[in-house]
Design a protein around this nucleic acid. Sequence first.
DNA 1: AAAACGTTCAC
DNA 2: TGAACGTTT
Length: 711
Amino acid sequence: MSGGGCSIVWFRRDLRVEDNPALAAGVRAGAVIAVFVWAPEEEGHYYPGRVSRWWLKQSLNHLDSSLKSLGTTLITKRSSDSVSSLIEIVKSTGATQLFFNHLYDPISLVRDHRAKELLTDYGISVRSFNADLLYEPWEVNDDQGQPFTVFSDFWNRCLSMPCDPAAPMLPPKRIISGVKPVARSSNSLVLILASELDHLNTHLGDTSRCPSDELVFEDESEKGSNALLARAWSPGWSAGDKALTTFINGPLIEYSVNRRKADSATTSFLSPHLHFGEVSVRKCFHLVRIKQVAWGNEGNTAGEESVNLFLKSIGLREYSRYMSFNHPYSHEKPLLGHLKFFPWVIDEGYFKAWRQGRTGYPLVDAGMRELWATGWLHDRIRVVVSSFFVKVLQLPWRWGMKYFWDTLLDADLESDALGWQYISGTLPDGREFDRMDNPQFEGYKFDPNGEYVRRWLPELARLPTQWVHHPWNTPESVLQAAGVELGSNYPLPIVGLEAAKARLQEALSDMWQQEAAWRAAIENGTDEGLGESMESTPIAFPRDIQMEIDIEPTRNNNNTTPIVRHQEDQRVPSMTSSFLRIEEEEESSVDLRNSPEETRAEVPTNMNMGMDTRTEEPNQGGVQAIRAVVNNARRFDNFGLQLQTADSSTAESSSSSRERDGGVVPVWSPSSSFSEQLVVEENGIGSGSSYLQRHPQSHQIINWRRLSQTG
DNA sequence: AAAACGTTCAC
DNA sequence: TGAACGTTT
């Protein structure tokens, strides 16, 4: 035991006892205080949605009972500031160490770093681990030591790393509790236990001074809907483990064949378990690999192919963290900068029709109804509905992403950001913006027999398969026989595909013009005005959208209102009933104002940072993370919460490294004034030349495709 | 056996 | 749309 004190194991999205390095370290170090802090206000816009909160609640209960059977309990805290809560726990328990596992979203990057700094200052020994990824983002680089910019290259490298991902660890056999159990009711057994523990560990902390808060994850209105979820899903790590085994021994082998069916029960259904870290990705990877080898030996190529495909989806999850780490704005800003100039259609009516599954395109509508009803959507259908959203309706992608966030059971900021950016054509390897998918064709591809559509759109149930994916040009007699009355029973398409295509072309040429003008303005050094106006005109978003599907049919299909476009990437709509109200100014102030180089923030310019990656130095992404966080900090400031990073609008980042299982983890610390040079200098590289000078293309829109080809 | 042609699927 | 793969000539 080190130092006689006990350690805090801070659980977050790693709600498992198996293969949990932070927990293992805590157990190794002695007595453990397991803690979960619920501070959703820290997430800003991304207050978790109803179904996601439901899952979390179940998962925490499950973890608590697992911990209890191992000898301790989960202390839960309600907080508006995780780090302060940790400090309070330290004070009340006398803990001397803190262990936690890494997260990679921008808010976590900074929050966790702040936790490290403050608690270290407090004399606490802090260590953090990788529990969420096969490899840490900073471990995967190209031959020049730069982060990859396309998925396939990234994933190929992951699969050919010199070391295999760490083998999963076994769960601890027993945990010595760092807190004395408190007798909530007068339970003599608990008291006996407590005295026993006292006997064993005289230095133990005292939970009576560190009681758990009751965490509230649902309000009365949500309880009914949540009750249904339990029929279909079992949150918690052991159910996740079971799901993993079931999948690997069953549907995995057919994965490649079945993946095109919209409603097949052949996906892994692991995503919510993975989101909350109930299932270890590494364990998943190793088990799947074992199967792959076995099938390889048998010459089962279909099985091998399935494994490759499944691993690829694991890879995309990895890549989403990788992107988030390297480009922390990717959940709110397009990575290819020109999309900033796309004239999105601001039409709440379209948005509502999409959410309610009343667009007039059966496959899209079926998907949206399923999402609303169940919190689940097959991966293929996610692509269909989001592509429709962006290309046909041309609604701002972040509205759609936010809706996914609010409604998906496996809502995951990093994965969803990657998905939507991919769909929106804002990634170098994403699909082209001007390619429009046809929901009718996709319908026959993914739902050839119309079963999926009929399940979720009962009004079309009697339509013959031949017509079920395009009721708009179905003969009147057939419609009548099927009891479909277009425009009342089921809507006509709210936007015709041909019209949408024309509109898209127009919008794109508009976008390129704007982009060219912007670029010209920059070259003339007069970008201030344009940039300023761009940033300062956020589009107001409807505040209280009723997400309930109202029964009244949408009759106004012939949309006569002129299309409103806006030259700005959207504010994220705030649809959840978070008490945190986001005010106008904070969103658009993704402030790129203080330093000139900030104007290229959405373009990843860190591709040719000449730094030595052997030192595992965090790249530019970390710096951007800090910026993002400073913004968030400011956001919190508006609500009277205090974050130490918030006081300066510019942040300096310095980096240092800490040991981690023999490896080195980049640690980011925001301090008083921004200087990217410092980062470089601390590396002992390229001192003197500023980041900007080394990046002449920083001010330009980079053609990523070209770049990635030549590179 | 190489080339031309068709099919499929994009993260 | 075009890269990758499979099939045909």
